[in-house]
């Protein structure tokens, strides 16, 4: 699969622990596990709280809003990304706290900046999941 932005959409490998997370992405929802014991929001998704050791978590819906914590423009790609360069790989800091690795999709990735507000978008893998990526917030659908 390729997204409308030209990036490949490789499918993840859900496990018993992450199936709920990935099924939600196919519905356009970004879920975050939150610990039932200490309320810590957890990343990467797992049914374990690294803050307190609890194995009971609930899935909360992220707002999808965040800011760019850091990014890089890959000038060449490998594997499924062989013909995709240039593209931006980033850490986006979600409103809920976690800094998550992702792509920021943009016509001019070199003009992105640390601290820029971004909003989640979903790119369907065709295998019952979608990749959560981000665009500049307020930039419409470009």
């Amino acid at each position: 699969m390729r997204s409308e932005a030209g990036l490949p959409v490789p499918a993840p490998s859900p496990t018993a622990e992450t199936a709920e997370f990935w099924a939600a992405t196919a519905r356009g929802t970004l879920l975050l596990p939150r610990c039932d014991e200490c309320s810590t929001v957890i990343w990467y998704p797992r049914v374990f709280c690294p803050a307190c050791g609890s194995q009971t978590v609930s899935w909360i819906e992220a707002s999808g809003r965040g800011i760019i914590y850091s990014f890089t423009v890959a000038r060449r790609g490998m594997g499924p990304y062989k013909d995709a360069a240039p593209y931006a790989v980033a850490y986006v800091e979600l409103e809920e706290g976690p800094r998550i690795m992702t792509n920021v999709v943009d016509d001019d990735p070199g003009s992105l900046e640390v601290g820029m507000p971004v909003q989640v978008v979903f790119h369907d893998t065709g295998e019952g999941s979608a990749l959560y990526r981000f665009r500049r917030a307020g930039g419409g659908d470009r």
């Binding site: 990036l7 490949p8 490789p10 993840p12 490998s13 859900p14 992450t18 990935w22 990343w43 990467y44 998704p45 890959a74 060449r76 790609g77 490998m78 499924p80 990304y81 995709a84 593209y87 790989v89 998550i100 690795m101 992702t102 792509n103 990749l131």
Partner: peptide
């Protein structure tokens, strides 16, 4: 699955 999808070279 949370880091291998983004074109890390």
């Amino acid at each position: 699955s949370f880091e291998g999808m983004w074109g890390i070279n």
